[in-house]
């Protein structure tokens, strides 16, 4: 589905991303983790076409990203960033409706099909009651749900999330991720997400990519990645690895020394 091959990004002679290669299969959920400045967000910008790599190639469905065109690409790929949508005084309904943009031609207006899709998605993510509210009156968590709804009406086959839960409380963190998970199950969606929270990453991702200083340290399951020596090398701190009492997957605990 998505192939990243020997991709590098250099800014002012500094290698932000260096020779990164990985593949994601259809329907898979892959998480990118790593410390600040590891190049995680840059990878996202490169895949979404916001920036161009200085070396290597990224292809989606066996076609290089650069040959897709912005609009065609948006039909295949939706991106959710950490700050989501601007708190712009526009109604929730209208904001979500904008997700239909890549499916409309320049001369075309949104029609009944688009309105129905928006209503359906608002119902799915539980925003129906808020649909006439203005975006700037919503909380960060609600606005992030609007951003997800907007991504949903875009009907992509690949969803990219760049630290979607950074500014949210634990309730909303789980809420956002479970909406995404349900969507994945329903539509066989492929997901690539950058996460800061290693515990959530272990719970929600099939595979993890651990990055440090622009390079991939290791790719593997949460069992393989959440290892004490590996994490302490990358994060320069020694976490305690425990088992999740309910799901039997590795989780980390931090302790102050």
């Amino acid at each position: 589905m998505l192939t990243v091959e020997k991709v590098s990004k250099e800014i002012d002679g500094k290698k932000i991303v260096n020779h990164v290669s990985f593949q994601i299969k259809q329907g898979e959920c892959v998480g990118i983790i790593g410390p600040n400045g590891a190049g995680k967000s840059t990878i996202v910008s490169l895949i979404s076409g916001l920036e161009k790599p200085t070396g290597g190639e990224i292809s989606l469905s066996n076609r290089p990203i650069s040959s897709w065109g912005v609009k065609k690409l948006a039909q295949q790929m939706a991106v959710l960033t950490q700050d989501g949508l601007n708190p712009y005084p526009i109604s929730v309904f209208d904001a979500v409706l904008m997700g239909r943009y890549p499916h409309l031609s320049f001369f075309q207006r949104e029609g009944k099909k688009d309105y129905d899709k928006v209503e359906e998605v608002l119902e799915t993510v539980g925003l129906t009651d808020l649909k006439d509210q203005m975006l700037d009156t919503l909380s960060g968590g609600e606005r992030q749900r609007v951003a997800i709804a907007k991504a949903m009406v875009q009907e992509p086959s690949l969803l990219i999330l760049d630290e979607p839960t950074t500014f949210l409380d634990i309730g909303y963190q789980l809420n956002i991720l479970s909406i995404v998970k349900d969507w994945q199950r329903k539509d066989d969606l492929t997901i690539l997400m950058v996460l800061h929270d290693l515990n959530l990453a272990a719970q929600f991702c099939d595979r993890l990519i651990l990055m440090d200083e622009g390079e991939i340290v290791k790719i593997g399951s949460s069992e393989e990645i959440l290892q004490e020596d590996l994490l302490s090398k990358v994060y320069h701190t020694k976490p305690e690895i425990v088992r999740h009492p309910k799901w039997d997957i590795p989780q980390i605990l931090l302790h102050y020394e």
């Binding site: 916001l50 912005v70 948006a74 790929m77 960033t81 601007n86 712009y88 526009i90 904008m98």
Partner: peptide, 10 residues
Amino acid sequence: LGEEVAHHSG
């Protein structure tokens, strides 16, 4: 809605 959001939406 923001420059990046616009880009990601096509």
